[in-house]
Design a binder for these strands. Structure first.
Lengths: 232, 232
DNA sequence: CCCAGTGCTATGTGATCACAGATCACCGTT
DNA sequence: AACGGTGATCTGTGATCACATAGCACTGGG
């Protein structure tokens, strides 16, 4: 069978992902964009009804999210989204700066010129979206795409999964602290720090990129501390 | 009911862990001490037979280990212990130095004098065990206890789980590279770097501790590179 | 001798059932 | 009115069954 056969051009990959994996991806994305608030409780059967599957795939997805720290199984065996007390918030921020800083610095040494070009396009799209009235979660997604395009360029798979984990743990909290109060998906200083990150890529200077990334995160933190509610 | 009642003094907690959690802990420990080699395949039913439970708890445990990177589900849905190519080895080492370095530096600022005392005792036990002919995995366990006593003192739960994850990913490889060839559970420079770490705790000097930790890890790496087999 | 086709076996996944423990409202006693 | 016991209900866990597919030895035709 020739896959190049024009008669087969209408064929699309059908996707062989397990149900558990699809539920996991859906639920993960739902958490990442802030679909549920910290402290909120979930039940397997409630999720089962929402996804239209049986308990099994939901169980697998929930347990995996719990292993990643995106969900929490209390001693009572109840399931909830973890809360974000100040101590955890500070620790996650410190770790983000360290982990993502390393990724940026490494990417500056390895990234291709072509990838830098795509990075600039993504950032221009992000800036353009920032000027519009904040309506959708589009700026948030473009900002995320910009950051992870850099992190992927570092070519460190384990580090990348750790960073994804950090963003996942922040997801519910971002909605809670910022989504409600004015949908301030990101801060106005982000374009500047993004430009400095791109510049560091061009100059192959990892430390400049690391500093820009730290400013980017600290800018967002300042916004959260001003407008968000952090318990304790 | 008064729990201080002398009549109840013989009561012990009964333990309410789920089967899945117990299987997870067993399997985790088995991986951490190098019970299986990288690349080796596992099957649910084989593990089921070994643990004497049904498939369900094993499925949960395996999926959780897979989420943590300690196991791997291939596209074929087969389960195996991840291999350790050179690139992954180097990345894990780099991340260990960064993560554990932060933990040591933070611990130096926070650790109590009492905990420092316990640390010295643990280390003396470790050194004493090192002098004996290498028989069991006792030195390995004491070394681990020494390190994690420090990491716990940093009081950073998320960081601690990341570090545990690193050790877990290294487990199978340690057996493969060192266990067979002479049971060299740790290297002869470890006592020195350990002493320097303790000293840094007493002086509340995080950077000295960080450097000592880095030397400790690099010493072990050198041994592995000399005696172990790293594919690719 | 090589190789595509075929049937058997083993394995992970998903559905369903059964059950222990948690939660909560209700009620009777003090 | 306050408190402890009680029963119903809900939730996560574990066991069992059913099934699609990967892996593999075998076979028959070239």
């Amino acid at each position: 069978m020739n896959l190049e056969d024009p008669a087969l051009s209408g064929i699309h990959p059908v996707g062989t992902d397990t149900l558990g994996k699809r539920v996991y991806n859906e639920l993960r994305n739902f958490l990442m964009v802030g679909g549920v608030q910290p402290g909120e409780k979930l039940t397997l059967r409630q999720l089962t009804a929402a996804f239209g599957t049986s308990l099994m795939p939901v169980r697998e997805a929930v347990h995996r999210l719990a292993a990643e720290g995106a969900l929490e199984v209390l001693p009572n065996r109840a399931i909830r989204v973890p809360k974000m007390p100040r101590a955890r918030f500070d620790e996650l921020i410190q770790l983000r700066i360290m982990l993502e800083g390393l990724a940026v610095a490494t990417a500056a040494e390895k990234i291709s010129d072509k990838a830098i070009g795509r990075l600039e396009e993504t950032n221009e799209g992000f800036i353009a979206e920032m000027r519009k009235p904040p309506e959708s979660q589009k700026p948030f997604l473009l900002n995320k795409e910009f950051h992870f395009a850099i992190y992927r360029a570092a070519d460190m798979p384990v580090l990348l999964s750790m960073i994804e984990n950090m963003w996942l743990q922040f997801g519910p909290f971002l909605h809670f602290s910022m989504g409600v109060k004015g949908r301030m998906a990101t801060n106005k200083f982000a374009p500047d720090s993004h430009r400095r990150m791109i510049q560091s890529m061009k100059e192959r200077n990892g430390e400049i990129g690391r500093k820009a990334l730290e400013d980017d995160i600290r800018g967002a933190v300042e916004l959260i501390l001003r407008f968000g509610d952090i318990p304790e």
